[in-house]
């Protein structure tokens, strides 16, 4: 009798698996999933995707060696100009109102000019994560992988600049990011 019950149990499991699989395939090909960026994910999907992203980035970046001179003026100057050229369209600059890109992208790109309050240990892991994200990008988010055209040192410069960005006034930002008369020595 227990063997018969067990067999019935496994048949039910296989049936459920097949129904879910077929249902998933039908859903995939039906085209009824709303793909538009203006239709938000539900809370469960948001949580799954964010957890997947955060855990993946944390695992991939945990062994990165952060340069000791990350908080140096030369890195700030070199990274500032690149941030201004590459990032402000989505991540904004001090005093800038939201752009079409920053409002239209989904998931919304973080406003990197906002103040963050991290402990020192968190700052270290934040630097690692930021380096990894800038270098490798994030799938299906609009964040490109800049590593193909930028060496590691140049990416660390941007990480250094991001660390101090929230405390800059618009005037200080303009000075730090202007390429103006700067030579090519920073790169």
């Amino acid at each position: 009798m227990p063997a018969k019950q067990s067999s019935h149990y496994f048949k039910s499991l296989i049936l459920i698996f097949c129904v879910v699989l077929v249902g998933g395939i039908v859903f995939l090909y039906s085209g009824i999933y709303p793909m538009g960026a203006d239709t938000k994910h539900n809370k469960l999907t948001c949580w799954i995707l964010e957890t997947l992203r955060e855990r993946s980035v944390a695992r991939a970046s945990k062994d990165l060696q952060v340069p000791e001179d990350l908080d140096s003026s030369s890195r700030l100057l070199a990274g500032g100009a690149d941030y201004n050229d590459m990032c402000t369209g989505c991540h904004l600059k001090p005093g800038q109102t939201p752009t079409d890109l920053s409002q239209g992208l989904y998931p919304a790109p973080p406003n990197l000019t906002k103040t963050h309050d991290h402990h020192k240990a968190e700052t270290h892991s934040l630097a690692q994560k930021r380096f990894w994200i800038i270098k490798h990008g994030i799938k299906a988010s609009g964040m490109p992988a800049w590593g193909s055209g930028h060496d590691d040192d140049r990416i660390w410069n941007m990480v250094a600049f991001l660390h101090r960005l929230p405390e800059l006034t618009p005037e200080q930002y303009q000075i730090l990011t202007a390429r103006g008369d700067k030579d090519q020595g920073h790169h």
Binding site: D82, E171, L176, G180, H187
Partner: peptide
């Protein structure tokens, strides 16, 4: 061309100069 994807030289023509006069009032 991929390696030169973001050469700072490309930005020289449109490069802003630092407005350091703002520093005097800061």
């Amino acid at each position: 061309s991929n390696i030169q994807a973001h050469n700072p030289r490309f930005h020289e023509q449109n490069a802003e100069k630092p407005k350091c006069e703002a520093m005097n009032n800061s």
